[in-house]
Nucleic acid binder design. Structure first.
Ligand SMILES: [Zn+2]
Ligand SMILES: [Zn+2]
Ligand SMILES: [Zn+2]
Ligand SMILES: [Zn+2]
Lengths: 130, 130
DNA sequence: TTAATAAATGTTATAATATAACAAGCCGTT
DNA sequence: AACGGCTTGTTATATTATAACATTTATTAA
């Protein structure tokens, strides 16, 4: 059977909110939004978030415990992510730079470890804030 | 006056525990340890952690909400950190690779943003686990 | 079609992580 | 002694995330 990979009802609700947002959203702020539409409990939000992360539709900004929609159709399955984060206005942008991603995906250190995933967060001031 | 930059009592207690640990420690596990030695409340641990982070004596592994001692005397003030994390045994190693750190410190994207800090976390399987 | 299986939902309770607010102590400087 | 800055102590609370269990809905396969 053809896998249409349609999101479930809750997954869709949560995704749409994240997608429309101007910046990263926290789980409980998402919860607050979707409570108008039927979802009652944190767990329902977290389950949707987990699934969306797994699908690579969203990413978690670890330093903020917040979630953004993937703006980068080719970073499947959330294996290689890089973000730029303004420390003043909190603006977050997903970096799409093939040189950087190639460099990091090919990175090898001397510990004999084989990497299959990375997450990079840059901090600074955006054009407006500097 | 000459700033000897000696750690305070609580800061020292917390730092010693993190330094001796084999892996990253969570705040409440640190609390559990130091409760034998007088510290009673989470806040006392978090305050020490904040200070140690600020001094660059420890780093936070954001994906784990856990703390490790800096193994890298030259990464002052926690401005540029990179870690390798084993997804099986949870071993965490601070990466000390000047090519990588130069590459990242010099990185510029097309958004006009000037970066002054980054954190990179690599995931994979260590030598023992792969 | 129907039974089996897997995925998603609903619900209540609770765990784990982190900060607010306020009072008091210590220590070097003036 | 008095001031200022930093550190500590304490209680309460906010924020983030998961456990456990029951039920429902969707997919697969006989
Ligand atoms: Zn992405
Ligand atoms: Zn900004
Ligand atoms: Zn370091
Ligand atoms: Zn390992």
């Amino acid at each position: 059977m053809v896998q249409t990979q349609i999101l479930s009802k809750n997954q869709q609700m949560v995704f749409q909110i994240i997608e429309k947002a101007k910046g990263p959203l926290k789980a409980y702020s998402i919860l607050n939004d979707v409570q108008k539409k039927g979802i009652k409990a944190p767990l329902q939000v977290y389950r949707a978030l987990d699934k969306l992360l797994e699908l690579g539709k969203i990413h978690k900004i670890e330093s903020k415990n917040a979630f953004v929609a993937c703006k980068n159709s080719n970073c499947e399955i959330t294996k290689a992510t890089a973000f730029s984060i303004c420390e003043k206005c909190e603006k977050v942008t997903e970096i799409n730079n093939s040189k950087l991603s190639n460099y990091l995906s090919d990175f090898q250190d001397n510990t004999g470890m084989k990497y299959n995933k990375y997450n990079l967060e840059f901090f600074g001031f955006c054009k407006k804030c500097k």
